[in-house]
Design a protein around this nucleic acid. Sequence first.
DNA 1: CAGTGGTCTAGACCACTCG
DNA 2: GAGTGGTCTAGACCACTGA
Lengths: 249, 249
Amino acid sequence: MPETFAALQVDTEISQPLWRQLYMQLDDLLTSGALREGASLPPERDLAEYLGVSRSTVKRSYDQLRHDQRLGGRGRGGSVVRKPPERVQPTLGPLRGFTEEMRELGKTATTNVLQCEIVSDRRMASIFQRPSNAQFLHVVRIREGDGVPMTRELAWYDLSLAPEMAFWNGSGSAYERLRDLCRLELGGAEQSVEAVLSSPLESDAFGFDEPQPCLLFKRMTRIRSGALVEYVEGTFRGDAYVYRIELEP
Amino acid sequence: MPETFAALQVDTEISQPLWRQLYMQLDDLLTSGALREGASLPPERDLAEYLGVSRSTVKRSYDQLRHDQRLGGRGRGGSVVRKPPERVQPTLGPLRGFTEEMRELGKTATTNVLQCEIVSDRRMASIFQRPSNAQFLHVVRIREGDGVPMTRELAWYDLSLAPEMAFWNGSGSAYERLRDLCRLELGGAEQSVEAVLSSPLESDAFGFDEPQPCLLFKRMTRIRSGALVEYVEGTFRGDAYVYRIELEP
DNA sequence: CAGTGGTCTAGACCACTCG
DNA sequence: GAGTGGTCTAGACCACTGA
C-alpha cells in the first residue's frame, strides 16, 4: 500500500459505520492537500484487503466522494482526485448580461449555442401575454468563463417586439443586440433566484457525475414601455458562481 | 402485494440498472399522486421477493428516494412518503428583514433563538475592521414562517456602534431594533447569494435526512456613514424559498 | 418483541478503458 | 487483455421503533 494510505484504518468498535470512518479519513487526505488533483486512490479491491473490510464498504466511501464531485475517473484509470473549481464573484447591480459580467471579471466569455430556432410555445405565449400562435426565438446556450462552463441558459425573445432577433445566431451578448440592432430601450427586469440540484442535462454540461447544488435564475426583461421582451432561465453551477447584489436602504 | 405496487417490474434485458428502473417507477408513483403524504412503501424484503431481485437492489432505489427527501420513516414504521413543502416567494427590493418579508406574505414569523451572547472573534473583528478585542453580539436563530423552519441565521452586531443591542434577547426584528432603539439610520447593504448543500446542523434544523440545496446569503449592512453594523450569514432551504429581485436598467 | 431499515460480507459477472 | 469500477446476489447481524 502506498505510503499516503498506510495510515488509513477503520475500527468496528467505533459506533460510526465503517464506510463513514473511511470516507472522513479520505476527506482529510483531500482537504489537507496530501492528495492533489490528478492523484489516484488505490483500487477498491486493494484498499478493502488492506483494511480488512469488504470491497462494498470501500466502494461506499468512494461513492460518497464521487457524489461530492471530489473523485472522478473510471475504467482502467481507477479513481482520480478532482480539483474543486474556483468561484467567480460578479458584482451585479443593474441589469447586465453574462458577457458583461465576465468582461468585468477579466474573463473571456465564450458561448456554445446548442439550439437557436423560431418556435411557438403555449407556455411562453402565456408568460409573454401573447396569442398562443405568437412566435419566439428560442435559444439554448452553454456559457463559459475562460473555457469553464458556468451556466446553461434557456432564453426566449418576443419576435413581434424584436423581429431583428430572428436572424441572431445565438452568439455574443443578447442585450447588446437588443439595444443596438433592435433599438429597444430596456426598462428593467424581475428576477428570481432559487437553489436547486442540477438536472441530468445540466450535470452533463457542467461535467458533474451527480446532481449538484445550482443557482436557478428566472428573469423577465421588459422594455421601457413595460412590454416583456425576454424570458430567461439560467442555471449557474453553485461551486463556481456567487451572485452579488447591492441593497438600498 | 398491495394493488398500488402490483404493476412494478424490472427487466434485466434493459440496459438501465435494476435499481434505477425501480427508482423511476417509484418516482412516477409519487409524482403522479398515486402515493400521498403518509403512505407507506412495502418493506424492502417484501418488494425484493415480489420483484425477484435482492434486497440490496430495492434498498438502493429506496435510498435514492430518501436522498431526494421524498421518503422518510425508520424502524417499525417502514418507509413513509413525504410531502414536498410549498415555496414562498418574497418580493425583495430594498433592505428588509425576515420579519418584514413574512409579514408581507401574510405569514407569521416566529423565531427560535439558539444562541445570543457577547463575543470577541478575530474573524469578525477583521470583517468589521475593528481591533481584535472588539465586542459583538452574536445571535444564532432558526426563523420560521407559519411554523415551518425557513432559515438558520448567524448574525453579528457591532456593539461599539450599537451598544443597545447588548440587551437584545434575539427575538423579533433586528432592523426595527437598530432603527428605533439604537436610532441608527441604515445606509444599505452588500449581499451575496450562493447555492450550497446544507450543513449537518442546518439539515437537522430543517428536518432533512441528507444535505439539500440551499441559498446561502451573506449580508453586510452599513449605517449611512458607511460603518458596518451587521454581518449575517443565513441559509434558506431551497425547497421552500425563492428570492426575488427587481433589476434596474 | 417483532419487523423495520442500516450495515457488512464474500463472491460473481459485466462493460468499459487504457496501457 | 488485464484491471477498473458498476451492478447484483444471498445471507447475516445489529439498533431502533412502534404496535
